[in-house]
Structure formats: C-alpha cells, structure tokens
Nucleic acid binder design. Structure first.
Ligand SMILES: [Zn+2]
Ligand SMILES: [Zn+2]
Ligand SMILES: [Zn+2]
Ligand SMILES: [Zn+2]
Lengths: 165, 165
DNA sequence: ATTATTATGTTATAATATTGCAATAGGAGA
DNA sequence: TCTCCTATTGCAATATTATAACATAATAAT
C-alpha cells in the first residue's frame, strides 16, 4: 500500500453510499442553479454510473434502464449521456467506448483516467500541470489545445497483487 | 508563427514525398530485420496512412484499398491495421476511431497527439516526461501504468488564422 | 517433403452510434 | 389561463465501427 494521500477515490476504500448520495445531491443542486432539467432518465443514468467506479457502455446502461422500467431505445441512453457529459457530470472513456461518472463535478478540470485492465475500475484524477512538456510542444507549432484526453491503462494495486500469485 | 524547433512535423511545411519515402524505407528495413511480413495489403495501408498527416477510418481505408484493386472486406483493413499498430507503424486515435501513421517508427515512445478539429490533421509528439504529476498520482494508489493515451483536440495555427476572419 | 505457422478470402453478425420526424411536456410571457 | 416557444421524449430506421468463425492459401521451419 502506498502512503500518499488518495487523490482519486476509486481505488481506495470508502463509504460508497455517502459517495453516491453526495454526488446526486451535488448534481441536483447544480441543475437547479443552472436551470438544467435533471429528468428521470438523466437522473437514473447518473445514478447507474455512480453506482460503480467503472465505465459502463451505452448498451449496458440501456439494459439497466429497461430493467428500471424506462424506454429502451438507444437514443434514450445516448441523449442522457450527452446531457451528463456536456454538463460535466460524466466523462466518456474513449478507449472503452464507455462512460464514467465525474469525480469532480461542478469544477473546471482537465481529467485524466487510470483504467485497470483487470477489474475495469476507472479512477479519475486531475492532469492539471502534468502536460507541461506536451503543451510546450504544442506551442511550437502554434497549436491551441482546447481539450485533452488522458487515459492510462494499467493494473491497480489489488489486481496486481492477485496477479503475483 | 512560433520559434521553437518543430518537434512534430505534421503542422510544418516539409518535403512530404521525402517524408513518405523515408517512412516506407524504414518500415521495409524494420520488417526485414524483425522477420515481419510487409505483405501487399499491409504495405498499401501503410502507404495510405502516410499519404496524409491525418487519421483515416478503417472503412475509408477499405474504400481506398478497393480502388487499388484489393479485396475490400472489413477484415482486410482491420487486419492490416492491427499489424501496423502492433508493430509500431501506426497508432489508433481513440477519439476519432481512426488510425494515423506513426511519426517515430522503430523507437520506443509514448505518443501524444494534437488533433485539429478543423482540418483533422494529426500531429504526433512525445509525451516523455510530461506525465510527471500524473504518474506520481498513480503511485499514490499503487496503480501501475502500462500504456497512456494522450489526445489533445484543438485548432492548428493555420486553421486558427482562418477562423479569425 | 512434411508439418506448423502465418496470412488471406469470405460470410455473417455483433457492437456502437446517429438521423429524422412525430408527439409531448415544461417554461415564459400575454 | 392561454398561447407560443423550446426542450425533451418516443419511435423506427439506419449508419458506422468492429469482430467471429471457418475455409483456403502462402510461407517458414523441420
Ligand atoms: Zn464511491
Ligand atoms: Zn483492478
Ligand atoms: Zn509529411
Ligand atoms: Zn487545422
């Protein structure tokens, strides 16, 4: 086990019910403040994403929506996900064609993800200044970065221990 | 215009015929050295990718293969692309579901991409030490990074100038 | 030459995502 | 409230991206 402070919660033990409840409350509040409609389908999809610190594919979400009594055509899921991504409640994980709840909703941030190839947990952390060299290089050619995707594939601590055996 | 040296060539003016020829030569040599079969389909796909400093989708490549007289079933393109990616001649750009020729074939490197949303040029650069903060964060939770994808969307110098108008 | 490995041909299908249009609900102002 | 406008949803079809499965052919290894 490492001794740094847990910047990203996904791989750490934590009170996940509180984790989830807090996030839903935050979303609720943010929507009221910004006059956004957190409709039943959107709320449900966010709940589903918050349920696990893993990325879910659109069709997985669609199945879960169906189980919950929602209409189950693809646009239902994609529209809800679009809403959540556009408003910062979720992120799309490109390499998985999947979606994960944002760990820092409501704050301006440039996320980076650590994706365990074994248990598929997705931990979000901030890339912040981490791209110093990279953005310097960008400057050389006059390229203006608007959004950066950082996705690291690897293996989390507990999965690594299991692999050792 | 900036004054740094051009670390990535895609946005810079250059002798592209030489650029392409050199890359094909390098691929040829690498394959002979490593007993890899640079078969006609694989060679053609690599040529197509090298033709432009842009990412091409598998089905675009498939169309171009057909025009060049190759069999045009999806597996033809995907297999060739798999070969090229596995052996470091090309990279997959996740956010575009597309592929681009590697700018640094034969060298061990952790690529980062700058993708112009306007002209869709893809410039490859090295992320090298750029992820310092990020990997430090990774250490905190004991996560071991095996591969990192960095894709920056933005606008290149010349497209930005056009937008100004 | 025989065998094993690697690559290709071919068909079908899976998985992911979008379009278009009609119907409905929610919010703002008269 | 009523009307208008916009945002959201319902629904059917289709587009796009990617893989599975199995037969055949080419190449390499023995
Ligand atoms: Zn949690
Ligand atoms: Zn894990
Ligand atoms: Zn070039
Ligand atoms: Zn451009």
């Amino acid at each position: 086990m490492s001794d740094g402070k847990p910047i990203s919660i996904a791989f750490e033990q934590h009170d996940h019910n509180a984790c989830l409840g807090k996030a839903m409350q935050a979303a609720q509040g943010y929507c009221e403040e910004h006059k956004l409609q957190l409709t039943p389908a959107r709320r449900k999809v966010l709940e589903l994403l918050l349920q696990e610190h893993r990325a879910l594919g659109a069709y997985t979400i669609l199945d879960l929506l169906r189980e919950a009594g929602f209409n189950s055509q693809p646009p239902v899921a994609y529209r809800a996900l679009d809403f959540l991504v556009e408003n910062g409640f979720a992120h799309r994980i490109e390499r998985l064609n999947a979606f994960v709840a944002c760990a820092l909703p409501g704050t301006e941030h440039s996320p980076a993800f650590m994706i365990c190839r074994q248990c598929e947990t997705v931990a979000e952390t901030q890339s912040s200044e981490s791209n110093f060299n990279f953005s310097t290089t960008a400057d050389f050619s006059g390229f203006k970065i608007e959004q950066t995707i950082i996705e690291a594939k690897g293996v989390c601590n507990s999965c690594a221990e299991i692999e050792q055996l």
